[in-house]
């Protein structure tokens, strides 16, 4: 390599570096223009329940092999239905908080009902055997049901974990809150808004739920092909 080539190489690199570090687009446009096409949306999101809808009861297999229905809980005032699973890091991050929710609200009439909507064929970790194992390891105090009947799709669960707080009204289970457990999945110490607790606290005092829906990042659900 002669001196001239080396100089050219050096200069090119220098220009490239300066460009990388200092070049910023001069023209800024608004983050998202008005026109907005939403295509091929996850169909469950639009087909699922909204706050105020009546939620269906179900009969799903619990980790102890027995079938569980909402109707079995005659003393309950309502339910904290959580669509969750074993494999999802967000579900894992919330396991202890779901156990705490059941400890706090089951005796007050709002037991936790956990449902795994994932197809175990897609995620081995979400198999019935592994559900049993995880429940024992973490000491789940509530039913952990295998959704073989597409109940998650009917509710409109879009991700795990996804919570539906139901209240019994005139023999029906009415949806009162849909969304996240709180506002800090990755760090329980960083929680400032406990969405599910606020909702249930209000319901227990016969007050309206203030924050009725929230969103959170979560794992998409792989539905069973037969459901």
């Amino acid at each position: 390599m002669n001196k001239k080539n080396l100089t050219i190489l050096g200069l090119t690199l220098a220009v490239a570096m300066v460009g990388t570090f200092f070049f910023k687009g001069a023209k800024a446009k608004s983050i998202f223009p008005v026109e907005n096409k939403t295509i091929a949306l996850n169909p469950t999101v639009e087909d699922g329940y909204e706050v105020g809808d009546e939620a269906t009861d179900f009969s799903l297999k619990n980790i102890d092999g027995k079938m569980v229905s909402l109707a079995d809980f005659s003393a309950a005032k309502g339910f904290i239905v959580v669509f969750t699973c074993n494999h999802c890091p967000f579900s894992k991050a919330y396991e202890d908080r779901i156990v705490a929710l059941d400890a706090k609200y089951s005796s007050k009439g709002y037991p936790v009902i956990a449902i795994n909507p994932n197809d175990p064929a897609a995620y081995e970790e979400d198999s019935f055997e592994n559900m049993k194992k995880r429940a024992a390891e973490k000491g789940f105090t509530y039913p952990y049901l295998l959704d073989e009947k597409g109940i998650g799709q009917q509710y409109g669960a879009a991700r795990t974990p996804h919570v539906f707080v139901l209240k019994k009204e005139g023999g029906k289970n009415i949806v009162k809150y849909i969304g996240a457990i709180d506002d800090s999945a990755q760090d329980p110490a960083g929680v400032s808004k406990k969405y599910v607790e606020s909702a249930v606290d209000n319901l227990l005092q016969d007050k309206p739920v203030v924050t009725k829906t929230t969103k959170a990042i979560g794992c998409s659900i792989r539905w069973r092909s037969d459901s």
């Binding site: 949306l41 996850n42 879009a158 506002d183 808004k193 969103k215 659900i221």
Partner: peptide
Amino acid sequence: PDYNSWIDKIDPKWSGAL
């Protein structure tokens, strides 16, 4: 980490699933 504060800004139709 406060997902609810920004998911709708990306798109109101987004459930938050990846």
